[in-house]
């Protein structure tokens, strides 16, 4: 039974937790606020919190100057493409490991996990060289493949832990009733697996969207996503806080929203099912 908590105690908890929460969130809030200021207001001393003339001009300037939409589109293609491709490859693998396990299933799963631990920088030059040789440098296709491969272990693992929670008896019953393998997967398994697949898609879309090693090293102009676009602001020219903020806000807003939906899956996905 839960203990009764005094209102006073609850009020104190609430005050402390909100204060800390707002403190941690503050850099994001400040970035969003600054994106609506003019450049002069952005560096005003003392800083302006809400008492400034809100303007959208930074968003227009960022789009005009650097064709923001192109980078956004690249991010969508890279994150979306690599996630979908990963799902298509991982669903059959996870299905077979969850429902037709063999002696080696566990070893295969752990081995897949170990490929995720390979430090990217250790294989940077070979990948770079292969990309040059195959003409894939600065191409979306090449990056979709690389991002898919680095997330594939997480996708397989997440799907595996979700699939394992589906009772195998239901599948057997379908089989007894004469369902073929295809029917079994399409009509029995898929409806039950949709929530798990959706969570996996969500988390891996976020991971691919924020990936900032391969996207920085293997793109230049054509395939550069938002991570590379933002990095181009690291050599500032004159007043630019407000524009940096506008660009940053646009780059993180979609993921912040998606991320809030994926809190629970985050734990499962990033601990490989070890914490649920």
């Amino acid at each position: 039974m839960a203990r009764a908590v005094t209102t006073q105690r609850k009020a104190i908890n609430t005050a402390i937790a909100w204060a800390i929460g707002l403190l941690i969130f503050f850099p994001i809030l400040w970035t969003i606020l600054t994106s609506f200021k003019t450049e002069a207001q952005a560096i005003a001393d003392p800083p302006l919190f809400l008492n400034f003339d809100w303007t959208l001009e930074n968003y227009a300037i960022v789009q005009d100057r650097s064709d923001y939409m192109r980078f956004l589109w690249n991010s969508v293609i890279l994150a979306g493409g690599s996630t979908l491709l990963g799902i298509v490859i991982a669903v059959p693998a996870a299905w077979s490991m969850a429902f037709v396990p063999s002696k080696r299933t566990k070893d295969i799963l752990l081995w897949m996990l170990s490929t995720k631990m390979l430090p990217a920088v250790g294989v940077l030059y070979p990948i770079y060289l292969l990309f040059i040789q195959l003409g894939l440098l600065d191409s979306r296709f090449g990056l979709v493949i690389v991002l898919m491969l680095i997330n594939l272990p997480i996708i397989v693992w997440m799907l595996y832990t979700y699939f394992r929670e589906i009772p195998g008896e239901i599948l057997e019953a379908a089989r007894m009733d004469g369902a073929t393998l295809r029917e079994e997967i399409l009509y029995v398994l898929t409806p039950m697996a949709i929530p798990g697949i959706a969570s996996t898609v969500l988390l891996n879309f976020i991971l691919a969207w924020n990936e900032a090693f391969w996207t920085l090293n293997l793109t230049a102009v054509d395939a550069a996503p938002l991570t590379a676009f933002i990095a181009s602001y690291s050599s500032p020219e004159g007043l630019f806080f407000a524009k940096l903020s506008a660009a940053s806000t646009m780059a993180i807003a979609p993921i912040l929203i998606l991320g809030w939906f994926s809190q629970k899956q985050l734990v499962r996905g990033l601990t490989f099912g070890a914490v649920k």
């Binding site: 929460g21 941690i24 994001i28 970035t31 993180i252 993921i255 991320g259 809030w260």
Partner: peptide, 13 residues
């Protein structure tokens, strides 16, 4: 949500 938010901000940002 406030506490978790920084995790979703891309590293370059």
């Amino acid at each position: 949500i406030l506490v978790i938010a920084p995790f979703f901000v891309m590293p370059t940002v």
